[in-house]
Amino acid sequence: MEKTIIPKGYKSILDVYDTQTAIGFIKRCFEEALTGSLKLKRVSAPLFVDEQSGLNDNLSGSERPVKFDVPALNNNGEIVHSLAKWKRVALKQYDFHVGNGLYADMNAIRRDEELDNLHSIYVDQWDWERVISKEQRTIDYLKETVQDLVNAIAETSSRLHTKYPKVETVIDTKISFITSQELADLYPDLTSKERENAYVKEHPTTFILQIGDLLNHGEPHDKRAPDYDDWTLNGDLLFWHEPLGCAIELSSMGIRVDDQALITQLEKANAKSRLEYPFHQQVLNNELPLTIGGGIGQSRMCMLLLGKAHIGEVQVSLWDEETIDACKDKIFLL
């Protein structure tokens, strides 16, 4: 099965030069909308962290971070996968309080990522995090925050259409919330990705709740690191992407683990050895603020709003020969 899909009759709405300008416009507009909606302040993001800090995102647990030695430190650095844990520490360091938060323009390398229309080894996303109270650690608060995020995306889409009338992507602000177990019950004979496609086709803006824990059939909907999101209070935001005829995940987010959720999830993941890391000790000792946060894919958003068929149309990365050959004369890879 070919991994690169070229939609029949596909032609980019904007040429390569207008695309570049539009990418910058989208990023500026969305940052304005995001910071206003979620009360966030911009901070500088790290490209790498100390491998002994426990701050790097372990993703599903199988991905290998890019490492390099630092002779002056007598230790190794790791290119970040995301800033899921780093942001929580930063909120404490910057002395943020309940109701306020930060966002960072994050760039990363995920060397083991598959290469296809939606995936690249280069990752660019807005990583954001906000301090919450104990009383806000609820599904209802999570849903409210998801709605704020979708409203910011819809505002960006509207401004994009005003500037580029040919771009007609419409974001449905009515969100369909469904748990991963409900989704599995609805489509018991489909894989997790097939379930997403089937459901999101009928509900173009969807948030799948509670990802990471085992479902009734013995497998998780998707793997999720056990030491940042609370698996009972997290989820993925997906939109229907017409050019590819599939669901596209734009954001993974959630309320973060407290001390009890951290212990429970590390036990389930057979990863209690991580409790030795400084970050995990801070969570256990309640030295870090309670937070909600997530990552929002920049290239994914540009793909969605500009109606692009391949992520290589909106970012510069490395591609294998199969991808290059498939896109030749059909899709312009930056």
Rank of each mutant, 00 (worst) to 15 (best):
K3E: 03
T4A: 06
I6Q: 06
I6N: 08
Y10T: 12
K11C: 13
Y17M: 10
T19L: 00
I23S: 01
I26W: 12
S37P: 03
S37N: 14
K39I: 01
L40K: 11
L40C: 09
V43M: 05
S44Q: 13
P46H: 11
L47T: 09
L47Y: 11
F48I: 02
V49Q: 04
E51D: 11
E51Q: 10
N56R: 04
N56D: 12
L59A: 13
S60Y: 01
G61W: 00
R64T: 12
F68T: 13
D69W: 09
N74R: 11
G77N: 08
E78P: 02
L83W: 03
L83I: 07
K85N: 07
K85W: 02
A90H: 07
A90D: 12
A90W: 06
L91K: 10
L91R: 10
Q93Y: 08
Q93R: 13
Q93I: 07
D95S: 15
G99R: 08
Y103N: 02
R110T: 07
E114T: 08
L115C: 06
D116C: 09
N117W: 00
H119G: 05
H119D: 08
Y122T: 03
Q125H: 13
Q125E: 15
D127I: 02
Y141T: 07
Y141I: 04
L142A: 11
L142M: 10
E144A: 13
V146K: 08
V146Q: 13
Q147W: 00
L149S: 07
V150T: 04
V150F: 02
N151D: 14
K166D: 14
E168N: 13
D172S: 13
T173A: 10
T179R: 11
Q181D: 09
A184P: 00
L186F: 06
D189F: 08
D189V: 06
S192T: 06
Y199Q: 06
Y199L: 10
K201Q: 14
E202R: 13
T205H: 05
T206L: 04
I208V: 15
Q210T: 00
L214H: 04
H217Y: 11
H217M: 04
G218H: 11
R224C: 13
R224P: 01
D227M: 04
D227W: 04
W231E: 08
W231L: 10
L233D: 04
N234Q: 01
N234F: 01
L238M: 07
F239K: 02
I248V: 10
L250E: 03
L250Y: 01
S251E: 01
M253W: 05
M253T: 11
V257D: 12
Q265S: 06
V283G: 05
E287L: 14
E287T: 12
L288I: 01
T291C: 11
I292A: 04
I292R: 01
G294V: 09
G295P: 02
L304P: 05
L305Y: 09
K308L: 08
I311F: 01
Q315N: 02
W319I: 02
E321A: 11
I324E: 03
A326R: 11
A326V: 10
D329K: 13
D329F: 08
L333F: 06
